[in-house]
Design a protein around this nucleic acid. Structure first.
Lengths: 253, 253
DNA sequence: CCAACTTAATGTAAAAATGACTATAAGGTT
DNA sequence: AACCTTATAGTCATTTTTACATTAAGTTGG
């Protein structure tokens, strides 16, 4: 533990050797239950056997961590082709008990680069035959996560960090659309904001602001098989958004 | 290079072994020159000998990367006790040519966890006798960085990322105060915003917004030895700020 | 000492954005 | 056809923002 050496010794002796892992916090919206959910995996191996954990895994020697995130996410959950963004790097020396043991006998530490993702669960189904050391992938409401102590490693902290990040970004970066299908109604967009931000919004005013940015393209089509007036469908016009950003436009919702 | 193996082999064989470094983007405001500056170090060793680079270095096996950032920053620049926040982790497999060679013969990759810092150059002077593999620390205006190719590794990209982050955060997190001395005038605060955001602001309106948040504590004292009406001095009341945040207050400037 | 100068600080009116609310539209259901 | 539900448009008072004008408080130079 007390490995600190004075500077007269060769510095290289204390440079750490690390293994890197990635962990993914995948958010999805449950319109029915009106809450935000994340994907967790049941661990089948020690440490934290039978505990829930974020999908992820070790990074290969030749791949970028983003690619590792995509690879492990697909392997453990079946999710492919989704919006992924680097969240934070978690490096507490005590965060992973595997360091220095067994397959990791030759490394001092295991550091995790966390990513977060936003998906529409309707368009991205989980597979339930994940191999590797993860048995099953399941959606959990963020305010009903498995009890403390049943989450692996420092994953609870990673999740908290991810929630804070998404809440913070939602209002000034157009990431909310990732939680919806390509075509959506204004009410659905409003619901995204209500659930993530955790408070009710006023429809009429929300509509006005959303439309005033001119990045929502009305599709002419209408909602189908609803037992009330069907809403118009829109899509997020990303090209238009980029053009506006070029001119100094700031998204805000 | 082409180490990818199919999944029938033992996975552990391809799990990478990493060295971690930290790199610090230290921002300071030059009121005289009216621009934003960062600290760069002249490298004295290969690779990138005689090129400029961000202060930083290898992470020890037992320390957190934040501590490594503090340690290397002090060693190379003399800066201590400053605001430091994790920026992003840079992991391009080709980013550091030292991987697999010499002292790093036993690792596949060198990944860097970048931090950024905001300081008041007036209160945090650089020492110019830095040891290690860095000769000299110097302030560079962010829009007059050393020519491309004279910046080490992927440090140009790290700097860009840091600038974008600071610009983005300035308006909704009270980090601008870090660039000022403890006591400051409203005009100085305004200048922080003008320089970082890169546009002029209207004094009267800026004052009103800044004061309306009630996190600036007037100190009674006034500016001294200026050849015009001396401005009142304020300080950022961090305790008050935290109280307000508890109640759901959002900083915005 | 006074006029001129400089920046600080306050005030103000028009314009724009916001919030709460009302009214109407367009479907399905009974 | 009457009614239910949600979509969508519109209204208006209030608040916030913006641009600009005014006054205040110091220094400097004659």
């Amino acid at each position: 533990m007390a490995e600190s050496k004075n500077s007269s010794e060769k510095e290289n002796e204390v440079f750490g050797r690390f293994r890197l892992t990635v962990d993914c916090v995948v958010f999805g919206l449950d319109f029915a239950a009106n809450n935000l959910k994340i994907v967790l995996i049941k661990r089948t191996e020690e440490p934290f056997k039978d505990c829930w954990s974020l999908p992820g895994g070790f990074v290969y020697g030749t791949e970028k961590t983003l690619d590792a995130a995509r690879r492990t996410l697909e392997k453990k959950t079946g999710l492919v082709d989704i919006f992924l963004e680097q969240l934070y790097t978690f490096d507490d020396p005590q965060r992973d008990p595997r360091a220095g043991k067994d397959l990791n006998a030759d490394v001092d530490r295991i550091v995790s680069v966390a990513y977060y993702a936003l998906v529409s669960p309707a368009q991205h189904r989980l597979h339930h035959e994940g191999g590797g050391n993860a048995k099953d992938a399941e959606w959990f409401a963020v305010d009903e996560l498995p009890k403390l102590g049943c989450l692996s490693f420092d994953h609870e902290r990673i999740i908290e960090t991810a929630i804070t990040r998404v809440r913070g970004k939602l209002s000034y970066v157009p990431i909310g659309f990732e939680l919806l299908e390509r075509k959506f109604t204004l009410k659905q967009l409003q619901t995204v904001y209500e659930i993530v931000l955790g408070r009710k919004l006023e429809s009429s005013n929300f509509r006005r602001r959303a439309l005033s940015m001119e990045i929502l393209e009305p599709l002419g089509e209408r909602q189908e098989s609803v037992s009330h007036r069907p809403a118009l469908l829109y899509r997020f016009n990303e090209k238009r958004y980029r053009q506006l950003v070029e001119k100094g436009f700031d998204f805000e919702l």
